[in-house]
Amino acid sequence: MGTQTSIQTSEKPLGRDELAQLVARDITPGSFVNLGIGQPTLVSNYLTEDQNITLHTENGMLGMGPVAVGDQIDGDLINAGKIPVTELAGASYFHHADSFAIMRG
């Protein structure tokens, strides 16, 4: 039988941000990704520009950036979990029905 390796480097359980960092590093560069809501939304905070990953939200945004803070917050820019987010250059917006059609291929 093969051996399993663990991504955990200590006996302490991974925190939410540590898990999000691991997931962000695991996404294939150049991917288009829908992160969903809840814990997965933290992944956007750990993606790097050189990964060239495009994020999609169920509520109709392609090109979502990290969570917005402070004066970056625009009440009209939210992810599907209603968390304020930023937009990246070239972001686009569309009806949520079209957004779900994108996810379903």
Rank of each mutant, 00 (worst) to 15 (best):
L14V: 14
L14R: 12
G15T: 15
G15H: 04
G15D: 07
R16Q: 13
R16Y: 08
D17E: 14
D17K: 14
D17S: 12
E18T: 08
E18V: 07
L19Y: 04
L19K: 08
L19H: 01
A20G: 11
A20T: 09
Q21M: 14
Q21H: 05
L22Q: 14
L22K: 15
L22D: 01
L22T: 05
L22S: 06
V23L: 12
A24N: 09
A24L: 13
A24W: 06
R25M: 09
R25K: 15
D26M: 12
D26K: 14
I27N: 03
I27Q: 04
I27P: 06
I27E: 01
T28M: 10
T28K: 14
T28A: 11
P29R: 09
P29G: 06
P29K: 09
G30A: 13
G30N: 13
S31Y: 01
F32H: 14
F32Q: 13
F32P: 01
F32K: 15
F32V: 15
F32G: 04
V33I: 15
V33M: 07
V33N: 04
V33D: 05
L35F: 06
G36Q: 13
G36S: 12
I37D: 00
G38Q: 09
Q39K: 11
Q39N: 09
Q39L: 13
Q39H: 08
P40V: 05
P40Q: 05
T41M: 11
T41E: 07
L42V: 05
V43Y: 03
N45K: 12
N45H: 05
N45I: 04
Y46M: 09
Y46Q: 09
L47D: 02
T48F: 02
T48L: 10
E49Y: 02
E49C: 01
Q51L: 13
Q51M: 15
Q51E: 11
I53Q: 05
T54M: 08
T54N: 03
T54W: 02
L55A: 04
L55C: 05
L55E: 00
L55G: 03
H56I: 15
H56S: 11
H56N: 13
H56Y: 11
E58Y: 09
G60F: 12
L62Q: 04
L62S: 03
L62R: 08
L62K: 09
G63P: 04
G63I: 07
M64P: 00
M64Q: 07
M64A: 14
M64W: 00
G65M: 09
G65T: 07
G65H: 07
G65V: 10
G65P: 07
G65E: 01
P66S: 12
P66R: 13
P66I: 01
P66F: 01
P66N: 02
A68H: 00
A68Y: 01
A68N: 07
V69M: 08
V69K: 11
V69P: 00
G70M: 01
G70H: 01
G70E: 00
D71S: 04
Q72S: 01
Q72K: 06
Q72A: 06
I73W: 01
I73E: 03
D74H: 11
D74F: 03
G75S: 13
D76S: 14
D76G: 10
L77R: 11
L77E: 00
